[in-house]
């Protein structure tokens, strides 16, 4: 079994849509490939202070 949850989800979608006849425009626009990658991944670090006044740096 695949260990990547993303791969598991993407494979299901690919298997289902590959055997379906979609308009040719879908292929020209490469719809499936477009859905393989997110538009963007935003990362930031949350810096916060706990009750003992200690600073934490939590990656998000």
């Amino acid at each position: 079994m695949s260990h990547s949850l993303f791969q598991q989800a993407f494979d299901e979608i690919r298997t289902q849509v590959e055997s379906e006849d979609f308009p040719a425009s879908f292929e020209r626009a490469d719809v499936l490939e477009r859905l393989r990658h997110p538009d963007r991944v935003i990362r930031f670090t949350v810096r916060w202070i706990d009750d003992e006044k200690k600073v934490h740096h939590t990656p998000a």
Binding site: E12, V17, F22, P23, S25, A29, V31
Partner: peptide, 16 residues
């Protein structure tokens, strides 16, 4: 199948 195909149709049409 129905859920994947139906949603792919809607997304695909918008992307096109």
């Amino acid at each position: 199948r129905g859920a994947n195909v139906a949603s792919f149709y809607r997304l695909g049409r918008a992307i096109v």
